[in-house]
Each structure stands twice: as C-alpha cells, then as structure tokens.
C-alpha cells in the first residue's frame, strides 16, 4: 500500500469464513431478482454498455469466498455465484468495499487501479464500458434494497445505514451538497 492510497476496509475474516457455509442458490436467486430490478429502473446503463452488454464479467471480491459472474445481456441480466474461480471475458477483482465504493461514487476506479487495490484482466474495453455505465447510472443499492423490501423497507434502510457507519463501506450512493 502506498502513502497516498485510499485505505479500503476489508471484509472481516471470521464472517467471510462463515459465508463458506451459506448455500449459494438462494443468494444467487435474490441477487438475480435484484439485478433485474436494476435493469428495469436503469435502462440507460445498458444502453451505455453498447456492444459490451453481451460480455461476461467475473466480479471477484477478494475478501469474500465467492465469485460472481455478471452477464448484462442487453438489459436482461443474469448473475451466477460460485465458490470456484469462474471464466468470463473480463475479470474485476478487489476488496468488496472497493467494488461497492466505485458503484456508489465514493471511489475513483482509476485511482484504485493505480494503487493496485483493483485488478483487471481480460477484455479491458469491456471493463471500461461497465465502469463508465455504472458510474453514470448513479446507483444506490441501499435504496433499491429498501424499495424491494416492502413494509420492511424503512428498517432495512436503517440497518444498512448502521452497517455503513460501523464498517466505513459505501453501501449507498455517495453524494454531497452543492458547494457554491
């Protein structure tokens, strides 16, 4: 780690180990439904992906014992989870906090690449397209999760806010008030 690098929170080791026992199928089903909802609410994100909407992205949170395979499929996304390495057109690897922080606009992807917190392999153009499409979409995963939770939305939101404060991980959209 370099003097000027962002210090990314790392997922705690014990809970990460505990995740090894969690059945992946229900998690994958829930994440798939979540991704499809995002697709409906953010169609411009898929438009911005252009031809790279057909690419297969391996998302590898290096502090978790699982890997995701994301296939945007031009707005009909599919997500798969595996405990084994997966093959795709491109791989994006880094701590979960870094990946979520980029989604929420808290971190700059190039800066994480410079500091070696982020590793990319495979189709570099596809990675850039995905990064730019997600950055422009101004996603807020916490708000989406709360909206999906029906009557429990408010509690979910509070729970996520608490987790965000405790862990320092950007779990919701990073936004600051206009300054001038």
């Amino acid at each position: 780690m370099h003097d000027h690098a962002v210090q990314l929170p790392v997922f705690p080791r014990l809970p990460a180990l505990a995740l090894r026992g969690v059945p992946l199928t229900p998690v994958a089903l829930a994440l798939g439904a979540f991704a499809r909802r995002m697709a409906l609410r953010h169609p411009s994100m898929f438009k911005r992906l252009g031809d790279y909407g057909a690419a297969r992205f391996v998302l590898d949170p290096t502090d978790l014992p699982v890997t995701l395979l994301l296939e945007p499929r031009a707005g009909n996304p599919r997500l798969r989870l595996s405990r084994k390495p997966m093959q795709g057109d491109a791989r994006i690897a880094g701590p979960l906090s870094g990946l979520l922080g980029m989604v929420h606009g808290a971190y700059d992807g190039d800066a994480l690449f410079f500091s070696r917190d982020l590793v990319i392999e495979g189709d570099t153009a596809a990675v850039l397209a995905l990064r730019n499409a997600i950055d422009d979409a101004e996603l807020d995963l916490a708000a989406e999760a709360a909206a999906m939770s029906g009557p429990f939305g408010a509690q979910i939101r509070r729970l996520i806010q608490l987790a965000e404060t405790r862990t320092g991980v950007a779990l919701s959209r990073h936004e600051e008030d206009p300054l001038w």
């Binding site: 980029m102 606009g105 700059d108 190039d110 950055d135 101004e138 990073h174 001038w180």
Partner: peptide, 16 residues
C-alpha cells in the same frame, strides 16, 4: 473526462 464522477467531484471541489 475518462475518470469517474468521484474524481471529478473531488478535484473540482479542491480547485474551486
């Protein structure tokens, strides 16, 4: 222009 909105916001705030 190839950087994220996070970069843009931080650098602009600093230079303003």
């Amino acid at each position: 222009r190839q950087r994220s909105r996070s970069y843009v916001a931080q650098v602009v705030r600093n230079f303003r």
